[in-house]
Structure formats: structure tokens, C-alpha cells
Lab assay of single mutants.
Amino acid sequence: MTEYKLVVVGAGGVGKSALTIQLIQNHFVDEYDPTIEDSYRKQVVIDGETCLLDILDTAGQEEYSAMRDQYMRTGEGFLCVFAINNTKSFEDIHHYREQIKRVKDSEDVPMVLVGNKCDLPSRTVDTKQAQDLARSYGIPFIETSAKTRQGVDDAFYTLVREIRKHKEKMSKDGKKKKKKSKTKCVIM
């Protein structure tokens, strides 16, 4: 069974824990209790493949930012979460993405942009803004509501699919490099 290491990042209060708990335990946590770091595991079937999701729910508070490099190193894919009623959390996505790329030393890291709290009427981040940002990053965008469960499975499952595509691409690139290195030079 394939294991996928997913990391949920975003500013404090955007609903990272609520999304994760909704996926794992099928219930909505409405009281806000700032996370330092929590880890969850769940076995699911995605596109006919049974897999184990190892999900790291991270601290959004700035005082825990020193811990970010460590979990970013171990993560295979990242859910970059903002709240649709919090423009600052949307603007912060850029910083999370840049930090992930720096730590992973790669421009090509599996990510999904997630606009959470889409059940709320007080939207300050337009869907088109988020779609445009995701398009500019070359990553999928999904709106979710941890409260109603809308888009929750889709967000995590899409990230797994992005990781699969990335692994497939990397193995193809690896095979191309191996083929090239088999060419021999004969000096007579």
C-alpha cells in the first residue's frame, strides 16, 4: 500500500485542523484551538488504489514558523489553505509557496490551493482571484467548507493525484537520464 505524506499549511484560523478532522473523523470542530502540530493517518481508496494518507496539520501562528522547514522537508505534497473571508490569509499563500519551493529546492512541488469556509456569506476573496492565482502557479484550486464537508475529500484526493503525477514524471525523467548515460565512448 502506497503511503502519501501530505502537509496542510496556511495562516492561523483558516480551518486547516477543521478540514483535516472532517476528512479523518467526519465531524466539524467549530471551536478554535490553535494547533502546534498534529499528525493523522487514514486509509482510503483513490482511483481504485488503496493508500495510506499521513497528514500533518501544522501551526499557522507566526511564533511556530521555525518548525516549518522541518515538516516541509518531509512532506510530499501540500494543501495551501486560505479562508475566503480573510484576504490576508490569501496573500500569505505566496509566502508559504515560496518557502516550500526553497526548502524542497524545487520549482515543481505537488500543491493544491484550497479556499476554505465557502459556506460563509462574508467572502472577501473572489473565486476568480483564487483561480487566477492557482493557474499562475500551475496547481489545482478547490473551494471547501469544513463545516458542510463540501470539497473536503476532493481537496485531499486531488493532492494525492498531483503527487502521483509528480512521481510518474520524475521516474520518466530518471529513465531518460539513465538511457543517456548508457551511451559509451570508444577510443581507438
Rank of each mutant, 00 (worst) to 15 (best):
L79W: 00
G115I: 13
P121G: 14
R68D: 03
V114G: 01
K101W: 06
T74N: 14
G115N: 04
K104D: 03
R123W: 08
V125A: 12
Y71G: 15
G75S: 06
L120Q: 13
F78E: 00
R73Q: 11
G75T: 05
E76L: 12
K117P: 00
A83N: 15
F78V: 04
R97E: 10
I84Q: 15
A66H: 12
Q99L: 15
E76Q: 11
A66K: 07
C80L: 13
D105V: 05
L120P: 09
D108E: 09
L79T: 00
V81N: 04
M67D: 05
I100E: 01
N116M: 15
S106G: 13
M72W: 07
E76Y: 12
M72R: 08
I84K: 13
Y96Q: 03
M72L: 04
D126S: 10
I84L: 15
R68V: 03
P110I: 03
Y64T: 04
D69P: 10
V112S: 00
G115V: 12
R68E: 03
K88T: 13
I100V: 06
E107R: 07
D105F: 05
E107A: 13
G115M: 14
L113G: 01
V81G: 03
N86M: 03
L79M: 08
S122Q: 09
L79S: 01
V114K: 00
T74W: 10
Y71S: 14
I84H: 15
E107T: 11
A66F: 15
F78A: 01
F82N: 02
R68S: 07
D126N: 09
C80R: 01
A83T: 08
N116E: 05
D69M: 04
D108M: 06
E107D: 12
K117W: 15
R123N: 13
A66E: 07
L120G: 14
S65E: 11
P110E: 01
V81Q: 04
V114P: 00
I100T: 04
E76D: 15
E107C: 10
K104A: 11
M67S: 06
F82W: 07
A83V: 03
D69A: 06
E107P: 06
D119L: 03
F82V: 14
N86R: 05
K88D: 11
K104E: 06
D69I: 00
E98V: 01
Y96W: 15
G115L: 13
S122H: 09
V109Y: 05
F82S: 14
P121N: 13
R123Y: 11
D119Y: 02
R102G: 05
S89R: 02
V125T: 11
M72E: 04
G77M: 13
M67V: 05
R97Q: 10
G115E: 05
Q70S: 13
C118Q: 07
D92R: 10
E107S: 12
M111R: 01
S65Q: 11
Y71N: 13
K117E: 13
V114C: 06
T124L: 10
S106P: 05
D108I: 06
F82A: 15
Q99P: 00
K101P: 02
C80K: 01
V109R: 03
M67Y: 08
S122L: 08
A83M: 04
A66Y: 12
D105S: 07
I84F: 14
E76R: 05
G77F: 12
R97F: 15
R73A: 12
T124D: 13
D126A: 09
V109W: 06
V103C: 07
C80W: 03
R73W: 06
R123H: 12
V112N: 00
V81P: 02
R68K: 07
C118V: 12
D126M: 08
K104H: 12
K101A: 11
F78G: 00
R73T: 13
Y96T: 06
I93G: 03
L79H: 01
Y64D: 03
R123V: 12
N116I: 05
D119M: 03
C80A: 05
Q70R: 15
E91G: 06
L120E: 14
S106H: 08
G77R: 00
D105L: 06
I100R: 01
P121A: 12
V81W: 00
S106D: 14
I100Y: 02
F90W: 14
K88V: 07
N116K: 02
I84D: 15
D108A: 06
M67F: 15
H95R: 14
D105P: 05
V81S: 06
E76C: 15
P121V: 11
I84V: 14
D119V: 02
V114E: 00
P110D: 01
S122P: 10
E98R: 05
P110A: 04
M111F: 10
Q99R: 07
S122F: 08
G115H: 06
P121F: 10
V125N: 12
A66V: 10
E98M: 03
S122E: 13
V114M: 07
M72Q: 07
Q70C: 11
V81L: 10
L113T: 03
N116Y: 01
R73S: 11
Y96V: 09
R97C: 15
K104N: 14
D108G: 06
F82L: 10
C118L: 09
T124H: 11
N86E: 12
C118G: 11
G77Y: 10
T124K: 10
L79D: 00
I84R: 13
E63G: 04
Q70D: 10
Q99N: 04
V114I: 13
L113S: 02
D108Y: 07
A83E: 15
S65A: 12
G115K: 03
M72K: 13
P121L: 11
V112C: 03
L79C: 04
T74G: 12
D119S: 05
A83Y: 00
Y96E: 02
M72I: 05
V112W: 02
P121R: 09
